[in-house]
């Protein structure tokens, strides 16, 4: 009987560990292009992180004939992506007069590997990018914005709740709570919450060194001083639209704006014809 129980526990724990380590596994993809594709001047940069890893990135300064300090927007890609993902954003934001700082998060693209990637590491990388930007010429350090995609958006919200240097945040397809977005994924695969998913979550919390409730954007959004623009595709199958509603409801109504984009999913809101008018207007008034 004891042997049976031990065997059962080994199977449950083993399967849960397998899920935790394989469900979000991806292969590093390297960027194929640079802002030079659009004829923009840029520099390749190396941003140090708090644990002495190096992030690969681009500094794309705005044209600055008057040599005045300009607002800066930090662009944050999503899970398993790299700086290539931000090219269409660079193309529109650069001519609008913003300095841009783009980077590959740890374990992504050309940046250093780490033991694992997580929303917390994305958040730390955003703050490392802000530290780096403050040393660059012609940066108005009182006007730092962030634009984050998916987990990059969730991490941007978490970063803004900890770092009041961030004045303006735009998110696309950000999730409200890590447990909800991962729970939905496991539900799709028909994996029962108890004991498997419960164990996966416990293991992940142990690994990242934080409780999901402490880092969840929905638990932190009310603390954010920055202006926030949540953009979310109504047809998003990865992060359902109800998570955008939860974020919006948890935030300060004077600070948070939500645009539910009709006919768009998780990764294509920027294809909506009104997307750039809305985003540029938001940054113009908040940054």
């Amino acid at each position: 009987m004891i042997l049976l129980i031990i065997t059962f526990l080994i199977i449950v724990i083993g399967f849960s560990l397998f899920l935790a380590s394989h469900s979000y596994k991806f292969k590093k993809e390297l960027n194929k292009y640079t802002p030079a594709k659009y004829g923009f001047d840029f520099q390749e940069i190396k941003i140090p992180t708090k644990n002495n890893k190096i992030l690969y990135g681009w500094w794309v300064p705005t044209e600055n004939p008057n040599n005045k300090n300009k607002p800066t927007i930090i662009l944050v890609h999503g899970w398993s992506r790299n700086v290539d993902r931000t090219m269409s954003y660079i193309k529109k934001l650069h001519p609008a007069g913003y300095n841009l700082l783009v980077f590959d998060s740890r374990c992504h693209g050309r940046s250093d590997d780490d033991k694992f990637s997580s929303m917390v590491k994305f958040m730390e990388d955003i703050r490392a990018a802000i530290d780096y930007s403050e040393k660059l010429p012609n940066v108005d350090t009182s006007r730092i914005g962030v634009l984050g995609l998916s987990i990059g958006g969730a991490a941007s919200l978490y970063a803004a709740s900890l770092d009041n240097r961030i004045k303006s945040v735009v998110t696309l397809g950000a999730f409200s709570h890590p447990k909800k977005v991962m729970g939905d994924e496991f539900k799709k695969k028909k994996i029962p919450y108890f004991p498997f998913i419960w164990l996966v979550f416990k293991y992940m919390e142990f690994r990242i060194g934080a409780k999901f409730n402490d880092i969840a954007p929905s638990k932190n959004i009310a603390k954010i001083d920055a202006s926030i623009f949540l953009i979310h595709g109504i047809d998003d199958a990865t992060v359902p639209i109800k998570q955008a509603d939860e974020l919006y409801q948890a935030g300060n109504p004077d600070k948070v704006k939500l645009w539910k984009v009709e006919g768009k999913g998780h990764s294509d809101c920027n294809h909506h014809p009104e997307f750039w008018d809305n985003v540029l207007e938001f940054y113009k008034t908040t940054l």
């Binding site: 899970w79 398993s80 990865t238 999913g265 998780h266 990764s267 294509d268």
Partner: peptide, 8 residues
């Protein structure tokens, strides 16, 4: 790629 959170 067939990674989680890639639907586009």
């Amino acid at each position: 790629p067939n990674y989680t959170w890639r639907d586009f």
